[in-house]
Amino acid sequence: MRQSPIYNIPFQNIQEKNMSFEVVFNHIAEFMKLNPAGNFRLMIGTDSQVHKKHTVFITGIVIRQVGNGVWGCIRKVMIPRRMTQLHERISYELSLTEELVSMFTEERKNQLIEIVLPAVYQGATFTMEGHIDIGIGKRNKTSEFVKEMVARMESMGVEPKIKPNAFVASSYANRYTKNE
């Protein structure tokens, strides 16, 4: 299987730059190992911003132990044109999210599940969510795309979240799209 060039785009956060996906995955596993009896949510989402001559897409990966902290990082993709068509931009955001979700292969997901498995009867959990920067409100321009985008996430076996519950896309990733 040939990997697309997008697999080589590095991740970063405040502490580290130029992280490979392998390094990111190891950070997630180590975070979970700190308290294997926790309730963990692995959340992935993308947001975009159209600038004068390009469009920036930021995809965030966040592992959250409910009530006990988070670890996260982002990955930036720049398209050298203004993507002004909303459906195209939302669809590309989701494609970037899907690409990262697919990097969490069954083998990798099982590695993470194995961390919490010994504590399942004490209430430990692990879920994976795809955060989509769309909403269903009447005034929300993206509401017509909800069914399509939610179905795409569900087809990957990931729990879809839309606004206001899609905070990795609408809040975490969003704050990094503005810096240009």
Rank of each mutant, 00 (worst) to 15 (best):
R2W: 14
Q3N: 14
S4W: 11
S4C: 06
S4E: 06
P5N: 13
N8E: 13
N8Y: 04
N8V: 06
Q12C: 06
I14V: 14
S20N: 08
F21S: 13
V23C: 05
V23Y: 15
V24K: 06
F25Y: 14
E30I: 12
M32S: 12
K33Q: 15
N39A: 08
N39C: 10
M43E: 14
M43R: 15
I44E: 05
I44H: 06
T46N: 03
S48F: 03
V50L: 02
H51L: 09
K53G: 14
T55W: 03
F57A: 09
T59Y: 07
I63M: 14
V70R: 11
W71C: 06
W71K: 07
G72V: 04
I74M: 13
K76A: 05
V77M: 11
I79N: 12
P80W: 03
R81G: 06
R81Q: 10
M83D: 02
Q85P: 02
L86N: 05
H87G: 10
E93Y: 03
L96N: 07
T97Q: 06
T97W: 08
E98V: 06
E98L: 15
V101N: 12
S102A: 07
E106I: 11
I113T: 13
E114R: 12
L117E: 09
A119C: 10
A119N: 08
V120N: 00
V120M: 07
Y121M: 14
Q122T: 13
F126K: 00
F126Q: 02
T127S: 11
T127H: 05
G130E: 03
G130Q: 02
G135L: 02
G137I: 01
R139M: 06
K141H: 09
S143M: 02
E144P: 12
V146L: 02
V146C: 06
V146H: 05
M149S: 07
V150G: 01
M156D: 06
M156H: 15
G157C: 06
G157W: 09
G157I: 10
V158H: 09
I162Q: 02
K163I: 04
N165Q: 13
F167M: 13
A173E: 00
A173N: 00
N174M: 10
Y176C: 01
K178L: 10
